[in-house]
Computed example of a mutant assay.
Amino acid sequence: MTFANDTEVALISAAALINTGKEETDQLTTLADLDRFLAEQDFSGSRAHTAAELAAVVRLRAELEEVWTSTEDDAVAHVNRMLSDAHALPRLVRHDHWDWHLHATEPEAPLEDRMATEAAMALVDVIRTHEMERLRICSADDCSAVVLDLSRNRSKRYCDTGNCANRAHVKAYRARKSAKG
């Protein structure tokens, strides 16, 4: 494992959040979309269930995308601001089916603060271990989704949003076959 389990879970969730805006249609336009996303990501804590909450999460999505493609120094500035804005105070917790892990906000904190803090805490580990190159953009020519490379050999090139890897492999196979024949 490259990072602690809770760090990997938070990074996967951050990538999934960013990629909700990368499909042909935005996957976070309604409160029901947000409910579905949070359930898929097993995100706990209080909810306001308001349009303002949805808008805040969509703003967070844009900021996380900016961090994903930024330099290490720029990422540090974003992460520090996110932690400061949420008044983050890290502590160990255990709840539901999760073993000991870090939380840095109260369960009653606004959803966007809790989501930003989880992502920021995970990004802290990425930055401290100088692993920013694990945060990538899909290598498919027609895709701009983000990729989280947790492979041992840092070889993941394609996103999980569609079938980009399959399409690239078929294209390469056809090109090789065409060159032979």
Results as ranks from 00 to 15, higher is better:
5 N>V: 15
106 E>G: 10
167 R>V: 15
53 E>K: 06
72 E>V: 14
29 T>D: 01
79 V>P: 06
75 A>R: 03
108 E>M: 15
77 A>V: 12
20 T>C: 11
32 A>W: 02
31 L>S: 08
100 W>M: 14
173 Y>T: 08
40 E>D: 05
52 A>T: 10
115 M>G: 08
172 A>W: 05
63 E>Q: 11
162 G>W: 08
31 L>R: 00
8 E>C: 13
140 A>W: 01
3 F>S: 01
181 G>K: 12
33 D>A: 02
95 H>S: 13
174 R>Q: 14
82 M>T: 01
49 H>N: 13
90 P>W: 13
38 L>D: 07
97 H>Q: 09
124 V>G: 02
30 T>G: 07
167 R>W: 13
129 T>F: 00
133 E>V: 07
38 L>Y: 11
164 C>E: 02
90 P>E: 14
21 G>L: 04
7 T>L: 12
155 S>L: 07
67 V>M: 10
144 S>F: 09
103 H>Q: 11
145 A>P: 09
37 F>P: 01
57 V>G: 02
10 A>L: 01
133 E>I: 07
50 T>F: 05
24 E>D: 14
136 R>Y: 00
120 A>I: 05
36 R>I: 06
156 K>D: 07
33 D>M: 07
55 A>G: 01
43 F>Y: 07
1 M>W: 09
180 K>D: 12
33 D>E: 04
47 R>F: 09
138 C>P: 09
181 G>F: 04
69 T>W: 00
20 T>N: 00
125 D>Y: 02
59 R>D: 15
154 R>W: 00
88 A>S: 14
176 R>G: 15
40 E>Y: 02
66 E>G: 15
131 E>F: 03
153 N>S: 07
32 A>G: 09
134 R>N: 04
55 A>V: 05
132 M>S: 03
162 G>L: 02
100 W>N: 11
16 A>K: 10
11 L>H: 08
77 A>I: 06
158 Y>S: 07
66 E>F: 03
79 V>I: 00
163 N>R: 10
67 V>H: 02
112 E>R: 14
124 V>L: 10
114 R>P: 10
120 A>S: 02
69 T>G: 10
36 R>D: 02
56 A>G: 09
160 D>V: 10
142 D>I: 03
98 W>D: 00
25 T>Y: 12
143 C>W: 07
130 H>V: 09
38 L>A: 12
162 G>Q: 06
141 D>I: 04
11 L>P: 04
98 W>F: 10
53 E>L: 12
32 A>N: 04
35 D>H: 06
64 L>W: 05
169 H>G: 04
139 S>T: 09
90 P>Q: 15
158 Y>F: 15
169 H>P: 03
160 D>Y: 04
